[in-house]
């Protein structure tokens, strides 16, 4: 579903992502881990055609995000790190707006499903700007899955959600993957990766330090946190 081959992104003299290669297979729940500023968001933005890479290439569901960003965004669902629904539409209007852009049918039915699943029906007539950050994140979740994509790319999926809703979202993502969907999440919260990701990649200072099964990184008897810290601190000291 995703192939990254030597992806590099420079912002002036700063290299945000440096020659990163990995693949994500269909039906995987893949986690991109790394401390703040390690290049995770830049990686998602390149994979979704929001910014072009400086060098290297990628294929997302068979399309080149740099050459056909609209094609990629038509197929996948994206949840950005900073939720940005338009301020003066209500939650319901925003989902209808997205549905119209995506030319979807059964709009009411699709929206109802998400209002119920993420438990924010009572907020459907509230302006997006008046929603709490958590509800805005739910709304962005809903817009990303409204068209029932086969691949979702999610930047920090649970950061604004309360523990109950985090559980709901984690359960949903695992069920989605069981049903054949693919999820690519980027996060610095290791517990999420440890709990739900099949495979993980670790980025530090834009470079890929590890890519493999989550259990293999944690090692026998060690926590994912311990292994992650050893890896990142070892790289920083190198």
């Amino acid at each position: 579903m995703i192939e990254a081959d030597g992806l590099t992104k420079n912002y002036g003299s700063v290299t945000a992502v440096n020659g990163v290669s990995f693949t994500v297979a269909e039906g995987e729940l893949f986690g991109l881990l790394g401390p703040n500023g390690s290049g995770k968001t830049t990686m998602i933005r390149m994979l979704t055609g929001q910014i072009p890479p400086t060098s290297g290439s990628a294929r997302v569901m068979g399309l080149d995000p740099a050459g056909d960003p609209i094609g990629v965004r038509r197929l996948v669902g994206i949840i950005p790190e900073q939720e940005t629904p338009p301020s003066f539409l209500t939650a319901e209007e925003y989902l209808h707006f997205v549905a119209r852009i995506r030319n979807l049918d059964r709009i009411e039915e699709r929206c109802d499903r998400w209002f119920d699943l993420l438990e924010f029906r009572e907020k459907q007539d509230v302006l997006c700007k008046d929603l709490s950050r958590g509800t805005r994140q739910k709304l962005m979740f809903a817009q990303a899955f409204l068209h029932e994509p086969r691949l979702a790319l999610i930047d920090e999926p649970l950061i604004n959600l309360d523990p109950i809703m985090q559980r709901t979202v984690k359960d949903f993502l695992q069920e989605y993957v069981r049903d054949g969907g693919t999820v690519f999440i980027s996060t610095h919260i290791l517990e999420i990766a440890a709990e739900i990701c099949d495979r993980v990649a670790v980025l530090h200072d834009g470079r890929l330090l590890y890519c493999g099964r989550t259990g293999d990184l944690a090692g026998s008897g060690e926590s994912l946190e311990r292994s992650f810290l050893d890896l990142v601190r070892g790289d920083a000291g190198a």
Binding site: P86, L89, T90, E92, H96, F97, I101, V126, L127
Partner: peptide
């Protein structure tokens, strides 16, 4: 204050359908 509104996007977009880009104009 939390401001609540009924869905006005769809009725407005329907009225503007002939113009094209109706949902953008309604927004």
């Amino acid at each position: 204050r939390t401001r609540r509104f009924k869905n006005s996007l769809d009725p407005l977009a329907e009225r503007l359908r002939a113009v094209g880009s109706a949902h953008f104009i309604a927004k």
